[in-house]
């Protein structure tokens, strides 16, 4: 067999590859990949972000062994938090078994020697892109979000100097302008994901590209939510038990997406559904996007039937 294929295991390798025959002190990667100074800087940034909920804190984002857009911000946050006793879950679009989720789990299994899981309840850190798990989070869990565009005002105002002034003065009229325009054109608020919200009645925040279905899960959540944007080099946070209110009009209130019928696999009626094309004749299935939740529901109903 080809011996050059690197095998990912839950066991950390005894020694990192050493093609240049470097002396051993240069050879080993630091625990959880990032050097301690970088982790320290990110932790300080996160403390500030938690202290001022929803406000964006700049950090000096490192180059990561993956391209921007694949979760470099989230990985750096996770790397600065993770310890040997943590249990890590990574989801991408709600799923535990997509390429990105599998790779990031393997990355930390290898570099931080942590246990990984796909079960929401077992995880102490959940790194995510695009979803918040359907299961209620607890107060000993941390959610880490991979954020592409941290600035909620950016599509409306291109100048950074101006957006930071607007945040400082809590001037969010532009946000309502966007909603007004949506209703005039589409007869409803047409933001289906990354729905801007006001955190702790003070800062406007982009909740990263989660569907607006998940916005209510942020409000008064027991878990700590940390957001990392690698390319834009920004950190922000929603601490536990913090108000997160979506922007809306009193006569056009915020509402989540609703689905006709439940999940085709587990029958769940209160979860976010993905449309899966199953053949080339237009056949479609609506199934849970949260694979762990779907699995659990199927096991439960299967158990009852037996």
């Amino acid at each position: 067999m080809n011996s050059k294929i690197i095998k990912f295991t839950d066991q950390a390798p005894k020694e990192a590859p050493n093609p240049l025959n470097l002396p051993s002190k240069f050879r080993r990667l630091n625990y959880a990949y990032l050097d301690e100074d970088t982790k320290r800087e990110i932790r300080r940034g996160l403390l500030k972000a938690v202290a001022v909920p929803g406000s964006q804190v700049p950090f000096s984002g490192r180059e990561m062994p993956m391209p921007y857009g694949w979760g470099t911000g989230g990985i750096q946050v996770t790397a600065s938090l993770i310890g040997p006793n943590d249990v890590l879950k990574v989801i991408d679009q709600g799923s535990d078994d997509t390429t990105n989720a599998v790779s990031i789990r393997a990355f930390f299994a290898k570099t931080a020697k942590v246990k990984t899981t796909t079960i929401t309840k077992e995880a102490s850190i959940i790194q995510t892109r695009h979803r918040i798990p359907e299961d209620r989070l607890t107060d000993d869990q941390i959610m880490v979000y991979q954020v592409p565009l941290p600035e909620p005002l950016r599509p409306l105002e291109p100048r950074e100097s101006e957006t930071s002034t607007l945040h400082a003065l809590k001037e969010y009229g532009l946000m309502y302008l966007k909603l007004y325009e949506d209703i005039s054109v589409h007869k409803e608020i047409a933001i289906s994901f990354d729905y801007p919200s006001l955190v702790n009645e003070r800062y406007a925040m982009s909740p990263s590209p989660i569907p607006r279905f998940d916005n209510p899960k942020l409000n008064m959540s027991k878990a700590l939510h940390l957001f990392g944007a690698g390319r834009e080099r920004r950190l922000y946070a929603v601490p536990p038990y913090t108000k997160v209110a979506p922007f809306d009009f009193e006569d056009y209130p915020f509402r989540i997406q609703d689905f006709v019928g439940g999940c085709a696999l587990c029958g769940s009626v209160d979860s976010y559904l993905d449309e899966i094309v199953i053949d080339d004749k237009g056949g479609r299935l609506m199934v849970c996007s949260d694979t762990d939740h779907c699995q659990k529901m199927r096991e439960k109903s299967g158990g009852e039937q037996k």
């Binding site: 009229g173 309502y176 302008l177 909603l179 007004y180 209703i183 009009f249 009193e250 006569d251």
Partner: peptide
């Protein structure tokens, strides 16, 4: 725009 910036919350 001016109304919304001034706190109008009814479409």
């Amino acid at each position: 725009e001016r109304l919304l910036s001034g706190g109008e919350r009814s479409y």
